[in-house]
Design a protein around this nucleic acid. Structure first.
Length: 197
DNA sequence: CACTAGATTTTCT
DNA sequence: GAAAATCTAGTGG
């Protein structure tokens, strides 16, 4: 068993992200988010809920209008962070997928606290939603474009934990997207109490 | 419990 | 100028 209190877990390689977005989304369940602040205790959380955004053809994706200034990062190489501000106040984080030139990203919606969030599971900072998760991990647009394949201030790691039992549903909050709103592109750990909603 | 409204600002038409 | 990949507090049953 890997020592989860350490911050030396190996980051997932870029090849992990350079695959179809739905595959990456499913396999991100159970992986660890590792946040290392300047002179702050490390934070570790296990991903329990994600959504796949399939790029320019996906009417719910920010990439649907092509590589606008905001969305351009999703058209670039995989393994980078896409962070945006929504409703004027909440940040949401995504991991860029697919090969360079093809848009795709996975929204990280919720995680289970593992290390550094205070006594009792999640008592201090709820991680049960994309905005709350970013707030708890101090993820802002300052980290937009950050490379998550190196063990630096923020990355994603695999501790060898067994993949959770998965369930799927339509994505949250994309009712405007017509037929795309009905597609089951949200994946979550069917057993986790830390799933949003 | 279900539902509604308000906060607040970036992004793109 | 409208809408937005959200969240919280408030109301009413």
């Amino acid at each position: 068993m890997t020592d989860l209190t350490s911050t030396h877990l190996p980051p997932l390689p870029r090849t992990f992200y350079a695959r179809p977005t739905t595959t990456v989304a499913r396999e991100l369940l159970g992986k660890l988010l590792v946040r290392r602040h300047a002179s702050q205790p490390a934070l570790v959380a296990r991903i329990v809920e994600v959504e796949a955004y399939l790029g320019q053809r996906d009417a719910a994706s920010h990439a649907r209008r092509g590589p606008t200034p905001r969305a351009a990062i999703m058209f670039g190489p995989p393994g980078f962070l896409y962070v945006y501000l929504i409703y004027g106040m909440h940040h949401c984080m995504n991991l860029v997928t697919e090969t360079d030139g093809v848009a795709g990203a996975v929204l990280i919606r919720a995680a289970a606290p593992i290390v550094g969030f205070g006594d009792g599971p999640g008592r201090r900072h709820p991680l049960t939603g994309p905005g709350k998760l970013c707030a708890a991990l101090s993820i802002t647009r300052a980290l937009n474009g950050h490379d998550v394949t190196h063990a630096r201030e923020f990355y994603v790691a695999d501790d060898g934990a067994r993949a959770p039992r998965r369930a799927r549903s339509p994505r949250i909050g994309v009712d405007y997207a017509g037929a795309w709103a009905a597609r089951k592109l949200r994946f979550f750990d069917a057993r986790s109490p830390y799933v949003s909603g």
